[in-house]
Design a protein around this nucleic acid. Structure first.
Length: 643
RNA sequence: GCCGGUGUAGCUCAAUUGGUAGAGCAACUGACUUGUAAUCAGUAGGUCGCGGGUUCGAGUCCCAUCACCGGCUCCA
């Protein structure tokens, strides 16, 4: 192992041959998108540079530098200016700076093709060379509208009209180009040294699908060409972790044309999934949940009662059987409501925590599908908690803590969002206010920072969402806690209170993993396919040196299997170097090399995927160390090199 | 669903202006019996995503369709 000293003085141990990118990724979660340049002992290196000895490593972040935003914003103006020069009929919409770059939305008769990006880039280079100064000026509203109307910029006029009464309306000028803009910018176009237009996309005006679709061009820019190169390299490195790529390489899951959005779990992926389920049951058992299972398909009447038929009919898989409409469940809640109603409940029973690993199907739009992250069939680790009004806060705190415990087990960092009442919601103001207050209170009392999304709640209640990030920095909702004041009412759920009267229980709906499949996708990217030993589909790979070692290898295999260890034997007549290489590419945590020496002494020669050759160990020592690693769900190897 | 792109052997990729599809790895067979990241030789493998059309001739051009990739929208 190497000792890597970081800029802040902390020391990190990594395996020899680890890339600078991997270190960066492990420091900032998967948010390595911020890491633009690495420097080893003060010397700048590529992110794919392999660390071979102890060193000081710094990861330089352009994001952190002042002016990154202004820099990109100016780049977007230069792109708009270039587009206007090349395609004068173009109307400008909006062009902001974003993480990693910028974009601009255009409305033009000309259909942009990828080759246009090069032309536009070339024109941008000219504008950079022209050294145009950026000048800011303000106009009163009426003049501003007139100014933009004269230029034929209808979108800008609409934007100005929608600005608040007291807004200052500012413009930036660079040469012959003027754009409505609040700022801020660098002082001259010549500061933009390195720019690349990265992609072409459609985007609805103002993000509304009923509006016209505009043409959006994405780009990125940096103060130095070397930083751009490093950024592009970083993207390539990140793509190596893509769960779709690794899932195929390691035989974890498959997506087939025969079932778009319906993932197939292959034996190795199923092993991972089963270990997740085992862990999940353990955690929920400890937290006093009971587990149920409800049918995959239920009749229309149920979905009308729940409100899903009205709200989500188009996204449900419906079918008619014996002249009756049925739908495959898109959620587990209604089934759970029926289970609740199978018995009378007393306030003394509360809270009731009813969990279900439910397979749900949702007909997502074809364009929304994405590997395991966004699918049409997935397994929710669902639970519904029924409780009294004064138990809400504690229950929510309990769930937040449970989700936190689960994520910590995997070493994930996450962020939390609180979404409030949307427009097409059901329920009274009073219910909504109470529900939103309960969620907010729980988050505040836990001291959790959260992002507020006004109007983004579910139609039946507000929610707390937990988001994890993929290898390219896109975030995905995983855990969620939703307070539901609708379903108990619609299903007329009751419990008998202290007063002997019937009352309506409070219910929350929650998931921790969210979708097991999506969580697996995140896991694959987090570990780059190198699952910790408790999750690894194959924990130990046995490699024989020669055919005469097969009997002893089979003996070792049987003994490991008896201990509940997942083993695979490679007894092919290949050279050991070749077998090791293949096993290493399969990313399993341990290899045991079996040759004359081992067979004679009854030992095992251990190799770790992370550390390399460890040396010979007594069989029991190996097994016990591995079992304790698995039992603790350790994220790191507990083995050390035998000297 | 919308905008743009891609689709050739199990995988990763080639194939001049339209002229009968090729490599590496994997697989299979044989030899080698090997000590910590690739042994050698041979064999087999493709209706070029699917369906139309243009043409003497289409992997190459056109239309339609499916899937995937990047966005947008959506995400109970």
């Amino acid at each position: 192992m190497l000792k890597i000293t970081l800029k802040d003085g902390s020391v990190k141990e990594v395996q020899k041959g680890t890339t600078v990118y991997d270190v960066a990724a492990s420091i900032s979660g998967r948010l390595a998108k911020e890491a633009v340049v690495g420097a080893v002992n003060g010397k700048t290196v590529d992110l794919s540079y392999k660390l071979e000895e102890d060193c000081e490593l710094s990861i330089l972040k352009f994001e952190d530098s002042e002016g990154a935003h202004a820099f990109r914003h100016t780049s977007s103006h230069i792109m708009a200016q270039a587009v206007k020069r090349l395609f004068p009929d173009t109307q400008l919409a909006i062009g902001p700076a974003i993480d990693n770059g910028f974009y601009y939305d255009f409305d033009t008769e000309h259909k942009f093709v990828p080759e246009d990006l090069e032309r536009i880039e070339a024109e941008m280079q000219k504008i950079v060379k022209e050294d145009l100064k950026l000048e800011r000026f303000e106009l009163p509203r009426a003049e501003a509208i007139k100014f933009m109307a004269e230029k034929g910029e209808a979108y800008k006029v609409e934007l100005i009209n929608d600005l608040p009464e007291d807004a200052i309306i500012s413009f930036y000028r660079q040469g012959d180009f003027v754009d409505l803009c609040a700022g801020c910018h660098v002082s001259s176009t010549k500061e933009i040294k390195s720019v690349k237009l990265t992609s072409l996309a459609g985007a609805y005006w103002r993000g509304n699908e009923n509006n016209k679709m505009l043409q959006r061009i994405y780009g990125t820019s940096f103060p130095k060409a070397s930083m751009l190169d490093a950024y592009l390299l970083m993207l390539e490195e990140a793509k190596k972790r893509d769960h779709r790529k690794i899932g195929k390489e390691l035989g974890l899951f498959a997506l087939m044309e025969e079932g778009p959005g319906f993932p197939f779990m292959l034996p190795k992926g199923m092993a991972v999934k089963n270990n997740l389920l085992k862990y999940w049951r353990e955690v929920h058992d400890k937290a006093n949940y009971v587990e149920i299972e409800t049918p995959i398909m239920l009749n229309r009447h149920l979905w009308e009662t729940s409100g899903h038929w009205f709200h989500y009919k188009d996204n449900m898989y419906a079918l008619e059987i014996d002249n009756e409409d049925f739908a495959v469940k898109p959620m587990n809640c209604p089934g759970c409501m029926l289970v609740y109603k199978t018995a009378m409940h007393s306030y003394k029973d509360f809270p009731i925590r009813m969990a279900e690993m439910g397979r749900v199907h949702r007909h997502e739009l074809s364009g929304a599908l994405h590997g395991l992250m966004r699918v049409r069939s997935f397994t929710q680790d669902d639970a519904h908690i029924f409780m009294l009004p004064d138990q809400i806060k504690d229950e929510i705190i309990g769930v937040v803590n449970l989700i936190d415990e689960v994520y910590k087990t995997f070493g994930f960092s996450y962020h939390v969002e609180l979404s409030t009442r949307p427009e097409n919601s059901m329920g009274s103001d009073e219910d909504w206010n109470r529900a939103e207050a309960a969620l907010t209170e729980a988050l505040v009392s836990l001291g959790i920072n959260y992002k507020l999304n006004p109007g983004d709640g579910a139609f039946y209640g507000p929610k707390i969402d937990f988001h994890l990030m993929d290898c390219l920095g896109r975030t995905w909702q995983c855990g969620t806690i939703q307070l539901d004041m609708q379903l108990p009412q619609r299903f007329e759920l009751t419990y008998i209170g202290k007063d002997g009267e019937k009352h309506q229980p409070i219910m929350i709906h929650r998931v921790a993993f969210g979708s097991i499949e999506r969580f697996m996708g995140i896991l694959i990217e987090e570990f780059a396919g190198k699952f910790p030993s408790w999750l690894a589909p194959v924990q130990v790979k046995l490699l024989t040196i020669a055919d005469r070692h097969i009997p002893y290898a089979e003996e070792v295999s049987a003994k490991l299997r008896a201990k509940g260890i997942r083993v695979e034997l490679d007894d092919r007549a290949e050279k050991i170097g070749y077998k090791i290489r293949e096993a290493q590419l399969e990313k399993g945590p341990y290899m045991l090399i079996i040759g004359d020496k081992e067979a004679e002494l009854g030992q095992v020669s251990v190799r770790s995927r992370d550390i390399g050759e460890l040396g010979s160990l007594e069989f029991d020592v190996f097994v016990n160390t591995l079992l304790s690693e698995v039992a603790e769900r350790s994220l790191k190897t507990k083995f050390e090199k035998v000297e």
